[in-house]
Nucleic acid binder design. Structure first.
Length: 607
RNA sequence: GCCGACGUAGCUCAGUGGUAGAGCAACGGUUUCGUAAACCGUAGGUCAGGGGUUCAAAUCCCCUCGUCGGCUCCA
């Protein structure tokens, strides 16, 4: 179901009503609770509240119990429209607060003020007297729509608690957000919970450990990954792929240091706009301050600026797999999807205004090539623009407008659809980002292209044009993966660890059946690796020479998601064949074939 | 950083105030095996760290660190 049809659906209304039912239970159980907002969301609903005492997850059982009781009362949910803003205010203060007045109406009054002029101000009212004669009522300022009766809300579960800033602003008070979910049937609810469990098994942090890709150590520090041999191989493979692709397209590799004097960052504007994301500064004995690099761009700019550049030299495309460190807040670190140290597949293009459009299109093309190769199809593009209200940007508005227009023009020309997201620009310019969901449905920004008029200006970059006069180049910042860490984390989840053959850290496992087959297995592996023989291939091969049963070796290599196993016993040695097993379909026996035939098969698969 | 949850052997987990456990992995031995876990044995723990309550703490309380779900922020 897509977003639009979901928002029109009964399920969406049901969840919205479930949020109200939860709020009703909360007002009864916690007198004095201040209600803020409670919308339906992608997989359920939440309500933000302010309570006098901190809520705990152990309170959920009591809240759910009361919700069930209130549901059974069969309260009719009725829509009421206030005749005027004043009347609406009266309802909020007198009825919504159930006599507690202004003390609990704080957020609702603010929401009322935010209802645009001319729009209906509606309330949803649910009430009933129970068998003991107690009157229950809940009326809430709300656009709706809702279901007809609380009786319809039967299959729900409270999921988690979180702090959430009022109106999403850190400067505001932090409220308590209660997340829940609701479905039309018990089966669907259980299916959803089951799917959550399944998604957890695809989590890159779990697979990363099981498959030996990467690890973290508290002695190294949060968000600082240690890459294990298989994970490092994966990185090398991805780097090799992209490096070739870039060389083909006229990129030139450069290499720059991990730290630089603070002067570089004063010039770039990082100190003004990026400081809180940088690791603590270092000071040497001469009192020079150094900074661990959070971005590669100023370094590439220094290389550009080191010589007089002619328009004949442009475009210049400097590429670097540049490792950067950013001091992410402690609660924000998420495995390798959000780390404190990560490597960008970075490049900076210095172009003339005439070249901008073509170069931008060239970058989008390389991104498409990358996505296709990696098999990522489920992504969306987002144009991050400047938030006019924020002061976290550098440069003149004219530059911003020109850069934003350039991106839109290029996208239109390529027929690329995108959504505009104000406030998601980089501090120096607007950007086009690719957004992909992880196993748990969270959005992550992956590849990015950014058009930048501002850093060239700050650094006074020039090239000599045909007219013999200095002109200012435009920069394109771009990273098709985004970062190796995030991309590998995401790919791990997309493929549930079963990487495509070209990417798999170990492509082939050779399994000798008994000790007497080990020498032969070693020889075979050496040929497949291209170290001996004339198979004309270079595969990544392991030999499982442990003294274990064949069944066990197969099981463990299958769990390691190794694409092919070659089983080697007396029959094979006699016939000059190997028994080939594919990891597909839970392990498929492809029968005996010659090594040559096997190599032809895998080479074809990798084309 | 903030709100909530969690932290027991290398891994997955059991153990709710009274002598720290299991499976897998490791190690030693036996087995040499044809498509998803051979058999027997051995060893392994400051119960994340620190402080407190108690005759007694893995278990209750406080602090710190780390991890997880969110918020904010981001490749």
């Amino acid at each position: 179901m897509n977003k639009e049809s979901y928002e029109q659906s009964y399920l969406y209304r049901l969840r919205h009503s479930a949020a109200h039912l939860m709020a009703q239970a909360l007002t009864e159980l916690y007198p004095g609770v201040k209600l803020a907002i409670g919308p339906p969301i992608e997989n359920g609903f939440y309500y933000d509240v302010e309570t006098t005492e901190a809520l705990k997850e152990e309170d959920f059982a009591a809240i759910e119990k009361r919700m069930k009781e209130l549901s059974k009362l069969d309260q009719r949910i009725e829509r009421k429209v206030a005749k005027s803003r004043d009347e609406a205010r009266e309802i909020v203060l007198k009825e919504c607060t159930l006599g507690q007045g202004e003390a609990v109406a704080e957020y609702k009054l603010q929401l009322l003020d935010a209802v645009p002029e001319g729009e209906d101000i509606s309330f949803y009212d649910q009430q009933r007297t129970d068998r003991e004669g107690t009157f229950h009522r809940f009326i809430d300022l709300c656009r709706g729509p809702h279901v007809d009766s609380t009786k319809e809300i039967k299959h729900f579960k409270l999921m988690s608690l979180a702090g959430a800033y009022w109106r999403g602003d850190v400067k505001n008070k932090q409220l308590t957000r209660i997340y829940g979910t609701a479905f039309e049937s018990q089966e669907e609810l259980e299916q959803y919970l089951h799917n959550l469990e399944e998604a957890r098994r695809r989590d890159h942090r779990i697979l990363g450990k099981e498959l030996g890709l990467f690890m973290f150590s508290p002695r190294v520090g949060p968000g600082l990954a240690l890459w294990l041999p298989k994970g490092a191989q994966l990185r090398e493979t991805m780097i090799e792929f992209l490096r070739d692709e870039q060389l083909k397209r006229g990129y030139e590799p450069v290499i720059t240091p991990q730290i630089a004097s603070i002067k570089l960052y004063e010039k770039s504007g990082h100190i003004l706009t990026f400081r809180e994301k940088m690791f603590p500064f270092m000071e040497d004995e001469e009192k020079e301050t150094y900074i661990l690099k959070p971005m590669n761009c100023p370094f590439h700019i220094e290389i550009y600026a080191s010589q007089i550049r002619s328009y004949r030299d442009l475009p210049i495309r400097y590429a670097e797999f540049g490792t950067v460190h950013r001091y992410e807040q402690s609660g924000e670190v998420t495995g390798i999807l959000r780390a404190r140290g990560f490597t960008q597949d970075d490049a900076h293009l210095f172009v003339t205004p005439d070249q901008l459009l073509d170069e931008f299109i060239g970058v989008v093309d390389i991104m498409n090539t990358v996505l296709r190769k990696l098999g990522l199809t489920d992504f969306r593009a987002r144009l991050g623009t400047k938030d006019p209200k924020s002061d976290k940007y550098v440069g003149h508005d004219d530059n911003w407008v020109a850069a934003t227009n350039a991106i839109m023009e290029a996208c239109d020309k390529m027929g690329m659809e995108y959504e505009i997201s104000p406030g998601d620009a980089a501090f120096y310019g607007p950007k086009l980002d690719l957004i992909i969901k992880d196993a748990l449905g969270r959005d992550w920004q992956m590849g990015t292209v950014q058009v930048d008029y501002n850093l060239p200006e700050r650094f006074g970059l020039e090239y000599i044009a045909e007219d013999g006069k200095p002109h200012r180049p435009i920069m394109i910042h771009r990273a098709p993966f985004g970062s190796l860490e995030r991309m590998i984390g995401l790919l791990t989840e997309q493929y549930a660890g079963a990487f495509p053959l070209w990417l798999a850290p170990v492509q082939v496992a050779v399994l000798p059946i008994a000790d007497r087959h080990v020498d032969h297995a070693m020889d075979l592996a050496s040929q497949l690796k291209g170290y001996s023989g004339d198979l004309g291939t270079k595969l990544r091969v392991s030999v499982d020479d442990r003294r274990e049963t064949l069944g066990k070796k197969i099981r463990e290599n299958q769990l390691q998601k190794i694409p092919y196993m070659l089983i080697l016993g007396d029959k094979d040695i006699e016939n000059g064949t190997v028994g080939v097993r594919s990891r597909e379909e839970g392990g498929k026996d492809l029968g005996a074939m010659t090594l040559q035939a096997f190599v032809e098969m895998v080479e074809k698969e990798m084309d």
